[in-house]
């Protein structure tokens, strides 16, 4: 069993940071909603409040890690230009997608949207985390602040969902591969 360095980083970017962020988003939305609509502040203990703050900080780290690895590590491998006369485009995912009318949309719509929309996730969740950490249980006394926080958290979920969906589909049709091969288990004869 083996994996290339580029495949491993793509997996860390998508499955490690991206998918984990999406999973965390659903939990955060429920918890933020429950926490901020609670009529009695005593319904949430300081321990629960602290937990949610740490949870949101972890989400901020995941979101930034996902977009930074995506933009500065995976994307250059994805958009690399093949030398003139290259016939086998398997090492050049963008060009591989664009070489076929059946897959060109995964780049022209999927990647073109994903590469920008993904950045709305860390921007939004950083704001959400900041507001929650700054206000804590006092958020229950700020109805409009609470509404905005929930909307931005939902937008962050949507942005990450769009990026994740297109990322998974693009990697299915034109996987990022190459680089050194890492042997995960001994070769069987």
């Amino acid at each position: 069993m083996e994996i290339t360095v580029r495949s491993l980083w793509t997996m860390i970017h998508g499955m490690g940071f991206g998918a984990l962020y999406l999973l965390a988003c659903s939990g955060a939305l429920v918890e933020l909603y429950r926490f901020t609509i609670s009529p009695a502040p005593s319904a949430s203990t300081p321990g629960q409040e602290r937990f949610l703050k740490v949870y949101l900080i972890a989400m901020v780290i995941l979101a930034w890690a996902a977009v930074l690895t995506g933009t500065y590590l995976i994307y250059p491998w994805y958009r690399a230009a093949p030398p003139p006369g290259t016939v086998d485009l398997s090492m050049f995912p963008q060009h591989l997608l664009m070489s076929n009318s059946g897959t060109i949309g995964w780049h022209s719509l999927g990647m073109e949207w994903k590469e920008h929309v993904a950045w709305f996730a860390p921007i939004s969740i950083t704001m959400v985390a900041f507001v929650f950490i700054r206000y804590g249980r006092d958020l229950s006394n700020h109805r409009q602040l609470r509404a905005a926080v929930l909307c931005f958290a939902a937008a962050s979920f949507l942005a990450a969902g769009i990026a994740g969906l297109f990322g998974a589909m693009i990697n299915k049709y034109a996987p990022v591969q190459g680089g050194h091969t890492i042997q995960l288990s001994p070769r069987s004869n």
Partner: peptide, 11 residues
């Protein structure tokens, strides 16, 4: 709410 408003609008 000023601090929260600043964070929301800037986002």
């Amino acid at each position: 709410n000023g601090s929260g408003a600043a964070a929301i609008l800037s986002a």
